[in-house]
Amino acid sequence: MSAVLEFVGVSKWYGPVLGLRDVSLTVGKGITGLLGPNGAGKSTLLKCMTGEIQPSRGEVRMFGRRVPDPEVFRRLGYAPEIEVFFEELTGLEFVAHLAELSGFGRAEADRRAAAVLQRVGLESAMNRRVSTYSKGMRQRTKLAQAILHEPDVVLLDEPMTGLDPVGRAQMVTLIQSLGAEGRTVVVSSHILDEVEVMTREIVVLYQGQLLAQGDLHAIRGLIDRHPHHIALRTPRPRALAAALAREDFVAALRFEGDDQLMVETRDPDRCYSAVPRIAKEHDVPLLALTSPDDNLAAVFRYLTLGARGGAA
């Protein structure tokens, strides 16, 4: 992966508060999900990329140039987390104004603004003042101003916030289309499922530290070295527990409510194949077999528990 974005030993302190701690990472083309709970340092990382804030130590480079750099800004689009714009302007005026600041003439700026607002689905509202926009419309406007100049790098800070399910699906499609166009897209989020839909390339931050970076499935594989949880729903959980207790792949069993048995295993593959067979042999109806670990949330939970020094 050739690096478009590069962090080299970046730390950021806000007075005594640590925002980022010695973060080194590279980001290449395609979509990268920037994950972490609130306060993990996602926005700080993005702000370092845009030059909004200067690292206390280390450096951020984009296309090999140290940020901030006007040349970098020609190739960078950024949708910040803030919800406010210049509220007195219409959506079209706002985006066209920023197009002018990106170096386009008035006529071209207007044309691009209209086109990009159409692309994000705001064609019918572009002549309304942004003060009347809903949260979802604001998210789209932010995306529009970020991509109006067709940048090579697009940074999106929590772009799903405030969107309804339909809006989220549309936003995911838009972001995926940006990645498919060969751009570098960094999407920060704490809504893990949505990141998982968009990309397998993730960066996980926790308390300002880089916990993991790489392919989601590779990171997910880390979990298999640690106890994996599988939830079994059955009307006879005690009978099923008695049958499973003899199996060597079962590390622990726990009852949850009257109809659920939680199995902890270090060999999830064997467990998945054996449990239905064992249930059938003991004539125990198995209504559902799910794993709370089978999503990005689990990866995240595992990694952050590790960072806290907790048992994973």
């Binding site: 845009t50 006007p70 800004f73 803030i82 406010v84 920023l98 990106s102």
Partner: peptide, 14 residues
């Protein structure tokens, strides 16, 4: 304060 200046400051201008 509301950081709307960010929209200006990430454009290719000083």
């Amino acid at each position: 304060e509301r950081r709307t200046v960010v929209y200006w400051f990430v454009r290719p201008m000083a």
